[in-house]
């Protein structure tokens, strides 16, 4: 296996002939460990300076794709305005995992239960995808097609995550089977301000589902609308019925707190 660790995007574009993009490794290494054969070459994106940093630019927040979950957890920029995203990082894996796992990796791994995804959907996050010739900016819901399936073209990488909203109240809820190192049985994020109410729900369909334009509806109507749209499955973490029930109850609880 060839290993490349470019130190700039320019260097990166010179090595991407056959590429497996690699960031924290916390999802990829266990996959290789379980018998999947290692790729011919991997490109380690962690050192790319263009993929680093969390900053507020005008009214939006920019997060580099190689930012670790631990950095998200500790960033003061997220504390008041992007609380749901920060909360999702607190319950994420363990210290060891958070120190390696990146937000870009969590997005590109495209697990329906990925913890940062429901907050990113609820905050209307956009993704900056970069190739040799330039950029394109797309909504996160147009990037993820299904489990592990993403809209990333050959030669492209996820460079930044942009969150357009500010000054919103938000909350993240995750049900795991234990507190640390748990994969979500369900999770959801609610983003609320004067004019808008958005809910995104994870682990109840092949992708995270986003529900927006909910202002004016009763909590019961919102919940029954969501209940009719989701398609949860039975798996080792819980049954479909359990997922429906706990989602209804927890949405009712969190919505009543956030809408006053």
């Amino acid at each position: 296996m060839q290993y490349y660790r470019p130190n700039s995007l320019e260097e990166y574009f010179n090595v991407i002939d056959s590429q497996t993009l690699y960031a924290g490794g916390t999802d990829l290494i266990p996959r290789y460990e379980r018998g999947e054969i290692l790729p011919q070459s991997i490109i380690d994106l962690k050192r790319l300076p263009e993929l680093q940093g969390i900053q507020e630019i005008q009214n939006s927040l920019e997060i580099g794709a190689a930012v670790t979950i631990e950095e998200i957890k500790n960033s003061e920029l997220l504390t008041s305005k992007y609380q749901a995203l920060q909360e999702s990082s607190i319950d994420f894996g363990s210290v060891q995992i958070r120190n390696r796992a990146t937000i870009g990796g969590n997005i590109c791994n495209a697990s329906p239960a990925g913890d940062t995804l429901s907050p990113l959907y609820a905050f209307d996050a956009k993704l900056l995808l970069t190739n040799k010739n330039g950029h394109r900016l797309i909504n996160i819901e147009d990037f993820i097609f299904g489990p592990g399936k993403i809209n990333l073209e050959e030669g492209e990488l996820l460079q930044k995550i942009l969150i357009p909203k500010t000054k919103t109240k938000s909350v993240f809820y995750k049900l795991g089977l234990r507190e640390a190192m748990a994969i979500s049985v369900i999770n959801f994020a609610i983003v609320h301000d004067k004019n808008e109410l958005t809910i995104a729900v994870g682990a109840v369909a092949p992708t995270v589902l986003k529900f927006s334009g909910l202002t004016g509806l009763t909590i019961e109507d919102i919940i029954s609308g969501i209940d009719q749209t989701i398609s949860p499955i039975d798996d080792i973490r819980g049954t479909a019925d359990y997922r429906r029930k706990v989602l209804r109850n927890m949405l009712a609880y969190e919505l009543s707190k956030i809408i006053d």
């Binding site: 290993y3 290494i29 631990e70 060891q96």
Partner: peptide, 26 residues
């Protein structure tokens, strides 16, 4: 060997990591 248990924990540049989830070249 998948980052769940922490028995392979080492400190790398002031941060704890699971050494089973880091390539030595990294």
């Amino acid at each position: 060997a998948e980052g769940e248990c922490g028995a392979c924990t080492v400190i790398m540049d002031g941060k704890i990591v699971n050494s089973c989830l880091v390539l030595a070249v990294e």
